[in-house]
Structure formats: C-alpha cells, structure tokens
Design a binder for these strands. Structure first.
Lengths: 194, 194
DNA sequence: CAGATGACAGATATTGAAATCTGTCATCTG
DNA sequence: CAGATGACAGATTTCAATATCTGTCATCTG
C-alpha cells in the first residue's frame, strides 16, 4: 500500500476522500484512513490536528477543484455578457456532473459542506470574486450598466442559486431544467446591460 | 378539553399544529393529537387516513396561509414593477417572521416540508401563478418587455430563491441581507422592463 | 532526534431487547 | 346506524449495555 512513499498532506487527503467514498460520511473514521495508508492513526494526527480539520481540508480541496476550473474564463478577452453566460454554464455543468456522475460521493460532500460553513463561505467569496472580475470588465467597457461590481456579482450569484447550490441538486436532472437555467441567465443578463 | 364541540378536520389540524409545536416533528404522535382533543386515536383516523396524510394537511394549511396573504397584491391596479417589488417584499417579510418569531415551529415545518414535496410543488405553483398574473399585467401595459408570463414568473421566482426558500432561513437575520435582497430585486426588475 | 507507534481515557456509535406507536376492525353507544 | 372506541398485530422508536473511535502522549525506532 505505497508504504515507501513519504506521507504528505495530499496523500492523506486523497486517502480520506477514498475512505469517504467507500464508507460514507457517517462511518468514515480516522482509523480507516490510517489503515488505507498503512500507518497508525496517531500518524494521521501528526498532519491534521483533529478529524474535523481533516474533513474540512478535504472539503476545501473538493470545492477548490471547481473554482480553479472556472478561473480561466475570467481573464479571457471577450464580451463580458458572453463570458458571464459561459461561466454560469460551466459552473452548472460542473456541479451537475459532480452530482450525477457519483451521487454517493456527492451526497457525502453535501454532508461535509453542511459541517464546514466557513469553507463554503470562502468558496462563495472565491466564486463571487471571479464574477466581480467579469462584471467589472463589462462596466469598464460599457457593455454593462455602471454598477458596483462586487455587490452586483453577489446579486447575480444569488439569483442563479438554483443552478449551483447543491441543495437543489435533486432538481438538476429534471426535464425542463436547461430551459429554466436559460431563462434565469437571460433575465439576469438583460438586467445587467447598459 | 372542548369535548362538546364537533370534531372537524380544522380542529384536528389546529391540535396537530399545537402538538407539533410542543413536541417537535420527531415526537409528535397521533396518540398525542387524540389526547389533546380528548378523543381516541381511532377517531383521528376516521378523518385522516394516515399520519402522513395528517401531516401533509397541516403542511398545506401552513403554506396556504402565506399564499393567501399575498393574493391581494396581484389584483391591485398599480404599476406592475412596484407590485412585483411589494409582492416579494411581503413574501420575504412573511417568511422571515415565520422563521424568526417561532424558530421551534419553523424548524418543525422545515421537516414537514421535506416530507411533503408534492405539497411544496403545489405551493410554488400557487406563488408563481400569482407572479404570472403581475408579469402578465406588466407585459399587457407595456411596462415589461414582451415575455411569456408563466416562464418569466418562474425565472423571477427562482432568481429570488435566497429570500423565500426556507433552506436559507438561517441567513435571513444577517446584517446585509436587506441590501442583498434589494440588489437582486433591482437586477430582476431591470431585466423585466421594456 | 524526527517521526512513528499503540495503549489509554473519555466521547461517540452500535445493537438488540423492551416500550411505544400506527393503522385496522369488531364492538359499543347515543 | 353514524360515529366513537380500544384491543390488537406489525412497524418503529427508545434505552442501556457494549463496542468502537478520537485525541493524547510516553515510548520506540531508523
């Protein structure tokens, strides 16, 4: 079980995700993680002060993978409206795949997200920060009405919640959802234009 | 305990709400409801086929109280934009009071809502129906862009979810929330205007 | 001696036997 | 005889005992 490799935080996090996937959030123990790594559980506690800290780090890693996949769109040199639409489409698609491809793991992360509101807040700050970048661009170029980018980014993020908040994941496979997504994005974009 | 009065469905529902308030959703039993009414539990089953049906009816009653309090705004003869803003403000205020004034009971109803998705769907259909009325008026009078009232009502309802979906109730007492509500409503109204 | 170990105490979770609840229905009552 | 009752069977919940886990730390090892 790779006992020769150095025990890094990343290896522990990967093992923890695997244990969470196998056992679910209720039954995944630090002892399980240690066993998966071939070390004693005391060793895991050398890298993460508590089980809660370990779960928090796994949650952060999971959310950051989504943020990073979107970051590229912010700096592209294109119409802000189109970029905003693409950004939300990418976010919706990414979340929908996370939910649909491995429902087991997604349910697990929903529990972790409920436990780690501080991490979620940071994630939302990340995402609205990216949005503010696009909105600011649009305002500067005159595509969008002159608004405060940060406050407007938050409003736009809130308005699209049904298509990225995991609370609504169970609706993401319903038939009309694409159209409803489009309707909200259209409405929001009309509201932004100069 | 009012053993003389006729046993109506409404009396059973009121007693059930009281039992739910006292004991919470997990411990409220049909036997408790019967005891509160001074009848045997078999008698309760004469009016409601199952415990689930009883809880569903209580949930529907609770949601309908909100719908009815808003219905008046739909038929008023005023600017559609102003009515739409007032309607959402009234909805947000009503829900915020339900959540803030009796958190115990509100938490109980959140559980009931989770159990009764069909009732919730009907409630949402009620509310978006009211919205479609206002949107349709705005379109007819040329205040709003020419859109499909039903689809747009749904988009507008989705876009404001953070301020009426009970899932977000814990955020409704936070400091900046009024401003965030206003920002989303402003954005949506700008998106609707002709 | 830096890093890993595993025994340990207190906290948390599991389990299965006992208690309670749900839903039915034969019987009762006004 | 319309409507209420409460005994009952099966389902669900509670509770206390038992088992497992978390987090620490004195000890070990390369």
């Amino acid at each position: 079980m790779a006992t020769t490799e150095t025990l890094t935080a990343e290896r522990i996090l990967a093992a923890t995700e695997e244990v969470l996937r196998r056992h679910g959030p209720a039954k995944a123990t630090v002892v399980d993680v240690a066993r998966a790594l071939g070390v004693s559980h005391g060793t895991v506690y050398r890298h993460f002060r508590t089980k809660a800290a370990l779960r928090e780090a796994v949650t952060e890693r999971w959310l950051d993978r989504t943020s990073q996949s979107l970051a590229g769109l912010v700096t592209e040199d294109r119409d802000a409206g189109a970029r905003l639409r693409d950004w939300f489409t990418a976010l919706f698609t990414a979340k929908r795949h996370k939910a649909g491809d491995d429902p087991q793991l997604f349910a697990t992360y929903q529990v972790l997200i409920g436990e780690n509101s501080a991490v979620v807040e940071r994630h939302i700050a990340d995402l609205t920060g990216q949005l503010a970048g696009i909105v600011g661009d649009g305002v500067r170029r005159g595509t969008f009405a002159p608004v405060d980018p940060a406050a407007t980014a938050r409003a736009v993020f809130d308005a699209t919640g049904r298509f990225h908040d995991p609370h609504y994941a169970h609706e993401w496979e319903q038939p009309g959802i694409e159209g409803e997504f489009g309707a909200v994005v259209d409405l929001v974009l009309r509201g932004l234009r100069a």
